[in-house]
Computed example of a mutant assay.
Amino acid sequence: MVGRSFHDHHSAAAPGPGTKGGTVNRIPSIRVTDAADAAVLGLWHRSDRVSRRHGWRSIVGGPLLLILGIVPVIAAFAVPGPRWLVLPLLGLPALYLLSAGGLRTYAELFRLRIGPLIMHRFDDGFVAERPRGPLRAVAFAELKDARLIDHHGADGAMVLLLMVHWDGTAWACLAPSPAEALVEMGHAAEARREKLPRYEVNELLRKTPPWTGWKQTW
């Protein structure tokens, strides 16, 4: 249910790394409001485009691995020596690098294709949406855990909102501090506020499942 105009809200999340973050200057789409009504989330408050959780380093990581994987392939045919010895020694590393690079490139292209993550906040929950991909309505009462984490990242002071559903689905949203939109969402979800060093946040993100409970990437 759309309860008010989006332009009644002037605060916005600052852009997250790797995305053109911030407030989305339009009311939610029909599929968002239908999902919110079905989940009985109440009135709509705001919509914000948030970080993909991965920056430009992850986007170039896949192609870089592919390039590195080609080097052993070329070397296998250029290095003198018995083929039965040279091919396994250089072929196995090449296979690993090419496979890892291909998978990472596919994952990042998939995320780019389905669009940025948009979080639509309602009275009693939120709708997580990829404009050309998955959508899910979640009531705050369905969350197993919610954390607002302040830390100092590569781009300065950052805020991480980590919300985990009972089915294991996890949403990890990053934005430069003060990140009003994420903080508002965290307060609505009754997230506990804490401060962690950068290495602990990186480890937390590394362990956060990249797949939702519905087998779709966020």
Rank of each mutant, 00 (worst) to 15 (best):
L204Y: 09
L143Y: 08
L204H: 05
G62H: 01
G61P: 12
E184N: 07
H45L: 14
I74H: 00
V127L: 08
D123E: 15
K144S: 15
W56M: 10
L143E: 09
L205R: 15
I27V: 15
L66Y: 10
R26S: 08
E129A: 07
P63D: 03
V183C: 01
A128P: 09
R206P: 05
D123Y: 10
T169V: 13
V73D: 05
N25A: 14
L64Y: 01
S11K: 07
R136K: 04
V71C: 09
L103S: 09
T169P: 09
G133D: 07
H9F: 12
C173Y: 03
A76Q: 02
L174R: 06
G62T: 01
T208F: 05
G101M: 07
R52F: 10
A76K: 01
Y106E: 04
A38N: 14
D48C: 05
V79D: 05
F126M: 10
P82D: 15
T212S: 15
I118A: 02
G42H: 01
A157R: 12
G81Y: 04
L43R: 13
A128N: 03
S99E: 06
G18H: 07
R206I: 01
K144N: 13
V159L: 13
R132G: 00
A181Y: 02
G186C: 06
L162Y: 04
P210W: 02
L97A: 11
P116S: 00
W166C: 02
W84H: 05
A139Y: 02
P176Y: 04
G115K: 03
I114H: 00
M158R: 11
S47Y: 09
T105D: 02
P131V: 06
L85S: 12
L109C: 10
P209Q: 04
R192G: 09
P80E: 01
W84N: 08
R57K: 09
T19A: 11
H152S: 14
D37R: 01
Y96P: 00
F110Y: 08
R4F: 11
V79L: 11
G91A: 04
D37F: 00
R111G: 00
L135D: 07
P15A: 06
T33P: 11
I149Y: 08
A38F: 12
A128T: 08
D167L: 09
D167M: 08
D150V: 00
R198M: 12
G69V: 15
F140H: 15
V40E: 06
S5F: 08
A36R: 03
D155G: 07
A137D: 11
D150C: 00
M185S: 13
E190I: 02
V86C: 04
W84K: 03
K215V: 14
S11G: 13
W218N: 07
G42R: 02
D145A: 15
A137I: 11
S5W: 07
A128L: 04
L64F: 11
E108H: 09
R83V: 06
S5M: 11
G133M: 06
H54S: 12
R121C: 01
E184H: 08
T212I: 03
A179E: 03
M1C: 09
L205N: 15
L161C: 14
G22R: 14
A170Y: 05
P15F: 03
P131S: 02
L92N: 02
R83Y: 00
W214G: 08
R49A: 08
F126S: 04
H10A: 15
L174T: 07
